[in-house]
Design a binder for these strands. Structure first.
Lengths: 161, 161
DNA sequence: GCAGAATGCTTGAAGTTTCAAGTAACGAGC
DNA sequence: GCTCGTTACTTGAAACTTCAAGCATTCTGC
């Protein structure tokens, strides 16, 4: 798990607004975690975070999901979900069929093999995240979770404004 | 600035470890901010967050930086920095030349035009970030900054371990 | 029911990022 | 001063992502 040395924060100067510093640190931490996870998923399962994300959603939906629901849930575009699902289908993790009530829509669901595959990945994924975020105490994690909740809500408002 | 509806968090179930919830929320917030910034930079300047990052580093280094220093500072790979710098050079924002003391190394520095271009972007970039993180009070931002500092330090340890 | 708008998804092209392999230059030890 | 290992960067292929355009289907108001 050898990553390049990453620290964009070092380039900040004294007069920068503190919001900028916060953002840079947020970005750095998230990216470091994201890459680590992505690398481990690639190395151990030949998968990726984007794929994992799709599978994770499907795992929660026994009746499957429409493409639109999938792309709403992942932080990615419509076209990309089409691409990801096509790849996952080619690998046998997922199956697509036309929705019975709306022939424009496609329903995607996990195959049995896909479900098993996801379960294995999920275990390791969770262990890794717990390890990576272990620098914070449980209380600190709660605080952070709550602060991020505020941020998220504000971002949602900004977007519609 | 119309973004798709994004909320991967909704798929969490009750029994998930809270570290997982924290990570998901961290990821969501960061991605939302990242996309917003990237879109604004693209729309208003035909640029991108990755380019901005490179320019920001060079702006702090009057004597220029080596390619390696650049890729260490941005959260991206060596090869990508080559690509980004080549594009920036083609646009006249940046100039490359061989290091006098080590002919393997390349030194990149901003042109006068590049510096002006960056200054304009930086102003808008900062204003946008202040707006996006405005959901938190100054105290909360400080708390978050400090918590993320702990996370970052832990991640750095994890990586070398 | 029918025209036109809206919706759900796919497609293809272009852009971006990574990865692995390659080239050139440096440096330590003989 | 040669040789081997290392370092700095570039390159080309492949993976992935986005974007805009397109197609089929459904919905709405007449």
């Amino acid at each position: 798990m050898t990553l390049p040395l990453l620290d964009p924060e070092t380039r900040l100067q004294g007069d920068d607004h503190e919001a900028l510093r916060l953002w840079l640190r947020l970005f750095t931490c998230t990216t470091m975690v994201e890459r680590t996870i992505d690398q481990v998923l690639k190395r151990d399962f030949g998968s990726s975070l984007a794929r994992f994300d799709v599978l994770a959603q499907l795992d929660r939906a026994p009746d499957g999901l429409r493409m639109g629901e999938l792309s709403a849930g992942t932080l990615t575009t419509n076209g990309n979900v089409t691409w990801l699902v096509a790849a996952l289908e080619a690998e046998g993790h997922v199956r697509r069929r036309t929705a019975p009530d709306d022939r424009r829509a496609t329903i995607v669901r996990l195959t049995a093999a896909g479900r098993r595959h996801f379960a294995t990945m999920a275990r390791q994924h969770e262990a890794l995240i717990i390890e990576l975020l272990d620098g914070l105490s449980a209380t600190e994690r709660r605080t952070m979770h709550s602060l991020l909740g505020t941020v998220k809500q504000h971002l949602r408002l900004e977007r519609t404004a």
